[in-house]
Design a binder for these strands. Structure first.
Ligand SMILES: [Mn+2]
Ligand SMILES: [Mn+2]
Ligand SMILES: [Zn+2]
Ligand SMILES: [Zn+2]
Lengths: 141, 141
DNA sequence: TTTTTATAGAAAACAATTATCGAGTAATTT
DNA sequence: AAATTACTCGATAATTGTTTTCTATAAAAA
């Protein structure tokens, strides 16, 4: 993993810096689909001088070299995901968390759409919204 | 249609104003999925004094009374749709236009996801991106 | 090393959206 | 119809997420 990002950066002419490694490490070791601010806050303790702009610029690079994908779950900010398989997401409308949707095969659906449209489909994002188990429990009390 | 929005507004305690009717009429007679600025520009000629803030506030109300849905196609601004059926959208990554995806049944897919997750699913949005027929033609020349 | 080049971070700029507020207008009451 | 009330418009300012600019400095190359 470390090797991967290091050589990927270098191969594309980007420098390997502690900030970039820290940001990628943080993102690839969480399932919380954080936005720029969450990443910034998390790294604040360890990298007190890091700025939000660095997070944004790094995400731009990581996206470009194919290490992260950008999510747009109907909020006012973008979220980031280091898992590069194209999987659906679900957002809890009460607590706001965004999680993966597992165990669902999107290929059949994607193929159906690809064949039914004149667009040349390059990708897609599926967002569900609803209430997470936690919030359901809270509500029923 | 006119009747519908008029009575819906009144029933929910909102006043029926020319601006609101104009915005809703414009939106329901286009398939371009405009964002606030596009709506504003389009109405500028007929309503020279209308402000962007009014467009935003009106969209908020129209969303609340269930007459429009808000789209989030991975851009930096929201788009609006007066068609309330839940249908997938596709955005051309070259010219930026957003169109409907027709003739595809999402129910089976939605059901599969609903049953595979512990979330109580309330809704979803499906976005595809690719290249529209026009831009494909341009590219091949 | 030394030299070259890209980057980090502070600060300012930007763009989409939201909030505030006073004057105006529609609905309601008299 | 007139008066009262409550809501709304649009100008302006504020906010928020993101991008740009600039320069000392860290990383890569020589
Ligand atoms: Mn994910
Ligand atoms: Mn549509
Ligand atoms: Zn929740
Ligand atoms: Zn196009």
């Amino acid at each position: 993993m470390e090797v991967c990002i290091t050589s990927l950066l270098r191969d594309k002419g980007f420098k390997v810096t502690p900030q970039r490694l820290a940001i990628y490490n943080m993102l690839s070791s969480t399932r919380s689909h954080p936005n720029a601010e969450m990443i910034f806050n998390e790294l604040q303790a360890m990298y007190p001088t890091m700025s939000l702009a660095t997070v944004y610029k790094t995400m731009e690079i990581l996206k470009e070299i194919g290490l992260v994908q950008v999510l747009n779950a109907g909020e006012d900010s973008f979220r980031y995901d280091a898992v590069m398989t194209n999987h659906p997401h679900v957002r809890c409308t009460e607590c706001g968390k965004v999680e993966d949707v597992y165990d669902v095969n999107i290929d059949a659906f994607v193929n159906e759409v690809s064949q039914g449209t004149k667009y040349q489909i390059m990708g897609q994002q599926f967002y569900f919204h609803g209430i997470c188990p936690n919030c359901q429990r809270k509500n029923s009390n």
